[in-house]
Design a protein around this nucleic acid. Structure first.
Lengths: 280, 280
DNA sequence: CTTGACTTTGACGCAGCGTCAAACTGTACA
DNA sequence: TGTACAGTTTGACGCTGCGTCAAAGTCAAG
């Protein structure tokens, strides 16, 4: 019989660990003196402790380890837990390697451009959204901008400030036709769905539904509304580097409209629906 | 300006996270109402939040993230932290893959033998140890066993129970010569170094030094002293599976001597010094 | 009997929030 | 103008697996 100090030296573990395992019932000393509380371990408990240690090193939780070291655990259950853990490891290795590549890309960017200020791309899923908008083919980006301002001036007043959230644009035309934008412009809705809003003789905003998107590569553009292309460039580079490609119409959410003084900074979240490119 | 709820929906994070980041000074709202404590966030804070989120996803601690998002952090420091993290990831991937292989081996063992009771191999380093022993070439395992019993009966009484720890055997002959064991037998010492002990006319135990070993593959054998070979088999299989090979004399530490009733179970830790086999 | 090495229980700390709980605030509607 | 309800505040505990004191009790040697 060993006292806790000697036993811990033999097994190369700390006394605190042994006390903790006793506390949670994972490994109790063979005998505990009821007077003094002193713990006495036997050499026969070493195999159990060792098994606990190796299972723990495999990354299993102590709760799982506790199940596995009970001898009444069926072989099937053991197999199940190990198989599960194996799958977890596979996933975590994949994730770690993705992080690794991401860090490498950032380091390369640091070396090449010396810049640390590129906006960050975030991959997220967005839910379906009610949308009060009008779809049109517009002759240029400034036409869109005027329409946005027009809508921003009229709509909140018409249906109540509290039931709209942000101005959003959905761009259906391929990115590279600057002369004929096929786009939807309008407000994302927050509260209950309102009636259509007449903007002018030719334009009426109606309620539509923006579908949910599982994987949306997004980035927040801050600055002038006219130089969004740089942000699109960053997004495009990210897609390429991370093996994604575009699978639908992009969106732009105007988190903050530019001030009328025209030099005020706008904040726009650019969103592109994507899927993982099957890697060769 | 958004209140915390809307801002958290926009950024796809929980309100609790935003409050926590405020608390630790990582991201504070642009304005906090001094009367009510209400937090008001601006769209311009989204890029910072997003940067925090991606850096966190890279596995950096919030403390590190806090450094990186301060704009007065030098490019070199950023490079250093990312490079460090990259190295960490490499290590952790290696470890995960080792665990993966270990689990696979255990699953295979489950399938083939249906057994869950094989003793567990533990890799550890052992420190140098004072050792009171005699070295001899013995004609067989039972001769060793008798010598062990002889020593166990004489030595503790001679130099005091408290200054010895366990009987140990060091085996210098290659494992496969059952007829001529070149071995050291004696006691590991705990307290101060004693004088030599005369065991019989021909045999005297002297104090030596067991060198420290960095990597020792160990396993605890429980049962009869005569069937240690099965445990050696397990150890050998482990070495092969994990790409280790033996680089020195093995040891056996008798954690628990067998009872005189001869059927009593002994507990022996078998130790083999190893190094990693360079993989092709 | 004293001393010094060991051991006991108890408590806090860690990282990064999730998850209540109790008490306020803001606002839409009647 | 009152009220109901949704949103917000601070505060606290929980989680995982122990490491690290601290104060108080125990053991064995001299």
């Amino acid at each position: 019989m060993f006292r806790i100090g000697e036993f811990s030296r033999i097994a190369q573990v700390s006394g605190r660990l042994l006390r903790y395992y006793d506390e949670i019932g994972l490994l109790s000393p063979e005998y505990t003196d009821p007077q003094t509380g002193y713990r006495y371990y036997s050499a026969h408990q070493l195999p159990r402790l060792n098994r606990i240690l190796v299972l723990k090193e495999l990354g299993l939780s102590l709760e799982q380890v506790a199940r596995l070291v009970e001898q009444d655990t069926s072989v099937d259950e053991i197999r199940g837990m190990l198989t599960l853990r194996k799958a977890q490891i596979e996933r975590s290795v994949q994730e770690e390697m993705a992080r690794f590549r991401d860090i490498e890309a950032r380091l390369k960017q640091l070396d090449v451009h010396g810049q640390t200020q590129a906006p960050d791309v975030i991959l997220k899923s967005v839910p379906a959204q009610a949308y009060l908008a009008v779809r049109e083919v517009l002759p240029g980006i400034d036409a869109i901008q005027r329409l946005v301002e027009n809508i921003a001036a009229v709509v909140p007043a018409a249906i109540g400030k509290h039931s709209v959230s942000n101005v959003a644009i959905v761009i259906y035309s391929p990115m590279f036709e600057p002369e004929a934008f096929d786009a939807e412009v309008g407000y994302l809705l927050a509260g209950k769905t309102p009636n259509p809003v007449r903007l002018s003789e030719e334009r009426t905003l109606t309620v539509r539904d923006l579908p949910s998107v599982e994987a949306m590569a997004t980035l927040v553009h801050v600055g002038s509304v006219t130089d969004r292309h740089s942000s699109y460039g960053v997004l495009g580079a990210w897609l390429e580097a991370n093996q994604y490609h575009i699978v639908g119409p992009g969106r732009e959410i105007m988190m903050q409209l530019p001030g009328r003084g025209q030099s005020d900074e706008a904040v726009i979240e650019i969103q592109l629906p994507v899927t993982k490119t099957p890697h060769t």
